[in-house]
Computed example of a mutant assay.
Amino acid sequence: MARKTSTAQRKRIEADLTKQLKDKEIKGTHYEDLVQDYLAMWDLKNKLIEDIEELGVKVLSSQGYKSNPAINDLNKTNGQMLKILSELGLKAAPDDDGDDGEW
């Protein structure tokens, strides 16, 4: 089953990160740019996940089956996303979608 991502979800993440910057009184174009970098990586992360879901963890190459390169790229992208959050002094916040907070 494919992950559901949406423009609305992306906008909520952007608003949340921007609000956290404002609440911490962190200002500057550099920080706003880092938020945009984070969002670009979020987009990339979702595409990599779609690739893995579509092609699987193993892909056929000229030498036979090998690990899907998207898996390594996904790990690197997640690591960079965490570094950006750390550099900004922010943390991922729970999605406020109105449910009772259970998974």
Rank of each mutant, 00 (worst) to 15 (best):
A2M: 14
A2L: 15
R3C: 10
K4W: 11
S6D: 05
T7S: 13
T7K: 15
Q9H: 11
I13Y: 02
I13C: 02
A15R: 12
A15V: 07
A15M: 09
A15G: 08
D16Y: 06
D16R: 05
L17M: 08
T18R: 10
T18C: 10
K19W: 11
K19F: 10
K19E: 14
Q20K: 06
Q20R: 04
L21K: 01
D23R: 07
I26G: 00
T29H: 15
T29K: 15
Y31M: 12
E32Y: 11
D33C: 10
L34T: 04
L34A: 09
Y38T: 03
L39I: 11
L39F: 05
L39H: 03
A40V: 11
A40F: 11
L44Y: 07
K45N: 08
K45S: 07
N46C: 02
K47D: 10
E50H: 06
E50Q: 04
D51M: 00
D51Y: 00
I52D: 00
L55K: 10
G56Y: 02
G56H: 01
V57C: 04
V57F: 06
V57E: 12
V57P: 02
V57Y: 07
K58D: 08
V59L: 01
V59S: 00
L60V: 06
S61R: 07
Q63V: 15
G64F: 06
G64A: 04
G64Q: 06
N68V: 02
N68K: 01
P69L: 04
P69W: 01
A70C: 06
A70Q: 02
I71N: 03
I71R: 05
D73C: 07
D73F: 08
L74Y: 10
N75G: 12
K76T: 13
K76R: 14
T77I: 08
G79Q: 11
G79K: 14
L82A: 15
I84G: 01
L85T: 00
L85R: 02
L85I: 04
E87D: 15
L88H: 01
L90M: 05
A92K: 13
A93M: 14
P94W: 05
P94M: 08
P94K: 10
D96Q: 14
D96P: 02
D97V: 03
D99C: 01
D99L: 02
E102G: 02
E102H: 06
E102P: 00
E102K: 09
E102D: 12
W103A: 13
